[in-house]
Design a protein around this nucleic acid. Structure first.
Lengths: 200, 200
DNA sequence: GCGCCCAGATGACAAATGTCACCAGACCGG
DNA sequence: CCGGTCTGGTGACATTTGTCATCTGGGCGC
């Protein structure tokens, strides 16, 4: 019997996935979480064999939760995501995630993937893997990513500066560098671009 | 026995919802669609009692599909959405949708909601309904919405002008008006705001 | 016809933004 | 200790953006 932790912030989806997986006789959902922090807490408490985490989850994303779980437990992590972007896959694998499943995967496959991972194998969506291999790595520094993230809501330079605790001029420099690297004409275009690539 | 059409572009979610609903003895999923056009086609073919449509679905969104289904069939439509924004609810009700369910709804409620709708009642998520009632309607004109939509990717004024076939100065005027109405300091902030409200 | 309104356009102006060159500490290998 | 490198910061400058007053031409009631 494979014991599962299921985390997804959308109750409807999480509940539906539970229903789907409980149909399998060798799988049992022992805990459900709706936030990344709750996922970590419940993982420590229940020590499941596999943690199935949604990537898009407040307050920290599923990747952070995966890292924390992996740091403490032998639990294997399967990440499920809507926007399966190459950059995310790269980060996920670096974090030691054992399965990477976009939500475009047929539902019937999920149980098989979980069994594979439980058996020690890895699963990575073939399409994403292919594009991750052909695409270049993220050229941006951590700081550049930070200011780009902060500019996604349309904030002004000074607002971004306040958010990231930097001087406005410095923020402009980072943004300028990021824009050059991404070939964008404005920080907003750069932020959009970086998001599409899965870098923020 | 209530016959259902289920449409969601994410196979995993759609399959999981099918599993969830098939657990109910009085519900049966007679067709599954992964695009809005397929949803309309299958609805005409199978004439289900209820169509459960995801709002976020290519190529046209679930709202369009709902309108088309309603125009041809007595089928009742339940919309499921991730970003349950007041403006969207407003448009959905105007399109004759009978149920409006954000994905934050507990999974166990979905079957009840479907039975309610099948029985002729309506269901609207209480939280969204409340904010839709307290919030004002979209104050933006069609043109203002158009230029805001075009600016979402971070395009420059001249690029937007080319997209919407207007002079750059005119685009600036519309953007300026939109920013004033939304209390935003830049068009990017305004676009973000308008998106959050469900207006674009 | 006449006046009125409205979408679209223009031009002038101030403020915000992006570019660039350069400075000051901190940190590190040698 | 020294030079190299990295992060953070500053100031000058050209462009872009946002604001506002104003113009133009077409529809429309009368």
């Amino acid at each position: 019997m494979i014991r599962l932790l299921l985390a997804d912030d959308e109750d409807l989806v999480r509940g539906a996935l539970t229903a789907l997986l409980e149909l399998e006789e060798d799988l049992v959902v022992v805990a459900e979480a709706s936030t990344s922090t709750e996922a970590v807490r419940l993982a420590l408490e229940h020590r499941p064999d596999i943690a199935v985490l949604d990537l898009e989850m407040p307050p920290a994303d599923g990747l952070r939760a995966a890292e924390q779980i992996r740091a403490e437990l032998p639990t294997r992590v399967v990440l499920v995501t809507r926007h399966a972007r190459p950059g995310v896959l790269r980060r996920a694998l670096a974090a030691g995630v054992r399965g990477f499943v976009p939500k475009t995967t047929p539902a019937a496959r999920l149980a098989e993937i979980i069994r594979d991972v439980a058996a020690g194998r890895r699963y990575v969506d073939p399409d994403i893997a292919a594009s991750a291999l052909t695409e270049g790595d993220c050229p941006l520094t951590e700081r550049e990513l930070e200011v780009l993230r902060a500019s996604r809501t349309g904030a002004s330079i000074s607002e971004i500066a306040a958010q990231v605790h930097l001087a406005p001029g410095t923020v402009r420099n980072y943004l300028s560098a990021a824009m050059t690297k991404l070939g964008a004409g404005s920080r907003h275009a750069a932020a959009h671009r970086a998001w599409e690539e899965g870098w923020i």
